[in-house]
Amino acid sequence: MNEASEQLIVFDNVSKFYGEILGVNRVNLTITPGITSLVGPNGSGKTTLMNLMTGLIRPTRGQISILDMTPDEPEKLFRVVGYSSQFDSFPRGLSGYEFVYSYLLLFGFDRAQADEFAWRAIDRAGLRDAAHRKVGGYSKGMRQRIRLAQAIAHNPRVLVLDEPLNGLDPLVRAETIALFRSFASDGCHVILSSHVLHEVDIISDQVILMSAGYVVAEGNIQSVRSEIEDQPMQILIRCQRPSELASRFFEQEHIVEVRLHHDRRGLLVKTSSPGRFYRSMNQLARSGVGIESVAPVDDDVNSVYEYLIGGEESTR
């Protein structure tokens, strides 16, 4: 056991088949602490990956290690892992408080501790007022929040969240994202799946893009974008004399396309070589065309997703 592996979640050549049907195939991943988002269309294998990570299903092939533990040891694993799954069913007849409290009793906490931890988690999920109502009568957003309360109640080091922002109103969404950030800033793993790509973009330290059971790309979104060489990078340049700048760009062979921005105060440039583009920009900046800003416009999750997985496939 070494210190580094105690911090990592590792998938080593993991495959999962449901009979003939592929769940995930040959997944190799090393996930470091921070917020990691799983992105992909329906059936791409995001939930399968989360269920494998938490031992709810077993890999057909390969090994999984969560902070140096295997998912086959739930008695150890769930001391440090909290999972808010997408399963929208609860033990019958329980109130929100009883749901979290009963879960904590299973850890072996005494009643006073379980009560204290349950209320702390319920408060963090913003459900105190509804805590004594039956979960069966909760709205979708409230059920989502009580599952989140259950997942964080024992203060885990790894938080696995399947579509955690589904059904939440904007205010609660913002609070929930802040909660994830606070976990990540404490050195925890927050692994979530989301279909709201712009939120993934804002939240994530790294993304894992999945399609048809395969990991298509992983890592920091900008580095993933830079590896997509068959798609020229789009860059927006704000400047005072865009037409003059455009004529200079046409002389350079790595420039694939130049378009005048619709407000006529900038250029949208496509380049096959971002490195050469930025070097040439240093010279152009000194030539008096009045460059105000230079920013890539397609190094977000949305664009990367579209390039790698395809815009026609809708995410969840």
Partner: peptide, 20 residues
């Protein structure tokens, strides 16, 4: 019954040995 209710995961997500 809990498989049919889809609520068995409640127990399986707790640090409890399956035998226990």
């Amino acid at each position: 019954g809990e498989m049919l209710d889809k609520s068995l995961h409640f127990y399986l997500l707790a640090p409890v040995r399956r035998e226990v």
